[in-house]
């Protein structure tokens, strides 16, 4: 089983405290939403979980082991991150890029492995990317690039998914289908998700637990019911947010 534990984590940027004394335990099969206004530290939190950003204090434990003591490769075998920015200055095709997702698992430095190819092929068909697979990244639209990034993440086959704005550039149909695809991994194997997003309604649809980052390093966490209240959200975003109940969902909107 794979568990991620964040213990009394404090993060700051320059003199600004992003989060103070954050404790969080993400168990397998849990889907967490990470909400908060711009610049509050959602991306920094995700980066610090995999150890690419220095933390002020606290520790991050992956299956009981401190992440700073694990090799980066070992971390990458367990935790996959969907980053916000990608770089396309040097050319690469869609297929080549998705194949890179196998990097933490490759056995040979030179030879490709049939199993890796099989994983790539199945991800490509799952995300309906086969028509794009020979295209250059630079020729893709923003939404297509995002789907390629998500395909690369799925190819990595991590047990913990950290998603930074997964719905970026995606139209509403792809937002749902892509997140459905990722979430279906939770039931096929012991996986978990932490998803930072601006889209409260999308998060409410997919996540069962929430971390809400507030100003000055404060934060709220708990089940959807406890955290996603109009009052908490209004406080977090500094603007009045109300909710309405539809047949299936609770929807949130600014007044």
């Amino acid at each position: 089983m794979t568990s991620l534990i964040i213990e009394s984590l404090t993060l700051s940027i320059e003199d600004n405290i992003l989060c103070r004394d954050l404790n969080l335990k993400i168990n397998e099969n849990e889907c967490w939403g990470l909400l908060g206004r711009n610049g509050v530290g959602k991306t920094s939190l995700i980066h610090s979980i995999i150890g690419v950003r220095t933390i002020d204090s606290g520790q991050i434990l992956l299956d009981g082991q401190n992440i700073s003591e694990l090799s980066r490769r070992a971390v990458a075998q367990e935790i996959g991150v969907l980053f916000q920015d990608s770089i396309e200055t040097l050319p690469a095709t869609v297929l080549e890029t998705i194949m890179l997702g196998r990097h933490p698992h490759v056995q040979s430095r030179i030879k490709d492995n049939q199993n890796d190819h099989a994983i790539v092929d199945s991800v490509i068909s799952e995300l309906s990317l086969s028509e794009l697979s020979d295209r250059q990244l630079s020729s893709l639209s923003g939404g297509e690039r995002q789907r390629v990034a998500i395909a690369t993440l799925l190819t990595q086959t991590p047990n913990i998914f950290l998603l930074d704005e997964p719905s970026n550039h995606l139209d509403i149909a792809f937002q749902i289908s892509v997140l459905d695809t990722i979430k279906s991994k939770l039931y096929k194997r012991p996986a978990s998700i932490l998803m930072a997003t601006h889209d409260i309604n999308l998060a409410a649809r997919f996540c069962d637990y929430f971390v809400l980052l507030l100003e000055n390093g404060e934060h709220l966490q708990g089940s959807k019911k406890e955290v996603l209240t109009a009052e908490n959200l209004s406080k977090a975003y500094g603007c009045e947010i109300q909710s309405i109940q539809t047949k299936e969902n609770t929807l949130y909107y600014p007044v």
């Binding site: 995999i50 690419v52 980066r72 920015d85 990608s86 080549e96 890179l100 990097h103």
Partner: peptide, 19 residues
């Protein structure tokens, strides 16, 4: 292989296990 990954960016490379 690490060069292939680094071509796509430093964060991306670190996320895929590159030191």
């Amino acid at each position: 292989r690490s060069l292939n990954v680094l071509s796509r960016g430093e964060l991306f490379a670190q996320g895929l296990g590159v030191n």
